[in-house]
Design a protein around this nucleic acid. Structure first.
Length: 269
DNA sequence: CGAAAAACCTGGCAGC
DNA sequence: TGCTGCCAGGTTTTTC
């Protein structure tokens, strides 16, 4: 489900909890991608959240002496409920209880995680991540330099979080379409001006998706319960055999690294 | 070593 | 109705 825009949308929906105190918590199922800490509740109860921010597709709650790392995986969502609400959904794994409300983490496939860690920079899940796509560090010179030594396809290259974070399967296809670059091209074959176009496209696609509140395909809803509206703006993803929105060809679907890729064979080269 | 494939899970849907 | 097989927005681990 969530790529960077969906994570960013989720972050914004819960950012008002920054500064608030967690009164208690409830772990219904600790068996997530990374096991929820054994003494989770005793660690986290009665402490104040200093701030909440995002790094790559992780949402990070900072406390005085540790951090709570949240990843939504493929199917995770956060929702905000009234504290008194007893409405329980299947796959509600962890709840953080505040004075009036609670934050509930739901994830059918359990590819996501929620656990407490001591350090951020040295943590193995965070230490090998590439630059944020919307930062100045992610620019054409950087991409061109990194590309030059990789012969993997440009599509899987930009989905590799070591190279740049936040670009998942949907936005990889969309970005390459906007940049008019074939997803099959070896990364090392990209010229500087193509890297420039690709960087520009990735930034534009992600910004647009964030502004639309993310993409809802199957099960993504923001924590405020709203669907994301970026789906209506998708140009190639999930449009196999439909007419290209830029020329008259039909959109192709291929499988790269076991993931679906959509592209126009005529205007992407 | 880098790159590709498998693995972790559940739910939904197409086809029989 | 119900079974089987396949697909899904991610990322780590294993294999080649």
């Amino acid at each position: 489900m969530p790529e960077l825009p969906e994570v960013e949308t989720t972050l914004r929906a819960i950012s008002s909890f920054s500064g608030k105190k967690i009164l208690s918590s409830k772990v219904n199922n600790p068996n997530l991608r990374w096991k929820v800490n054994k003494n989770f509740d005793s660690i986290i109860r009665n402490i104040q959240i200093k701030n909440i921010h995002r790094r790559a597709k992780y949402i990070i709650f900072s406390f005085k002496e540790f951090y709570l790392l949240l990843h939504l995986g493929m199917s995770g969502t956060i929702r905000i409920a009234n504290k008194s609400s007893n409405y329980f959904k299947k796959h509600d794994h962890v709840e953080l209880v505040f004075k009036d409300q609670k934050i509930i983490y739901n994830d059918p496939r359990r590819f996501g995680s929620m656990h407490i860690i001591k350090d951020l920079d040295s943590h193995f899940l965070l230490s090998n991540l590439g630059p944020e796509p919307l930062s100045k560090k992610f620019n054409s010179k950087y991409l061109n330099h990194l590309c030059s030594s990789s012969k993997t396809s440009i599509k899987s290259f930009i989905m590799n979080q070591k190279n740049v974070v936040g670009v998942g399967n949907i936005y990889a296809s969309e970005s390459l379409f906007m940049a008019k670059i074939s997803p099959l091209r070896p990364a090392s074959s990209l010229k500087l001006d193509e890297c420039k176009a690709l960087v520009k496209s990735i930034k534009a696609i992600l910004r647009n998706a964030i502004n639309a509140g993310g993409t809802t395909l199957k099960d993504f809803y923001s924590a405020d319960g709203n669907a994301g509206y970026f789906k209506v703006r998708l140009k190639v993803y999930d449009r196999e055999s439909k007419k290209c929105k830029r020329c008259d060809a039909l959109i192709n679907k291929i499988i790269q690294n076991q993931r679906a890729t959509y592209y126009c064979n005529k205007c992407q080269s």
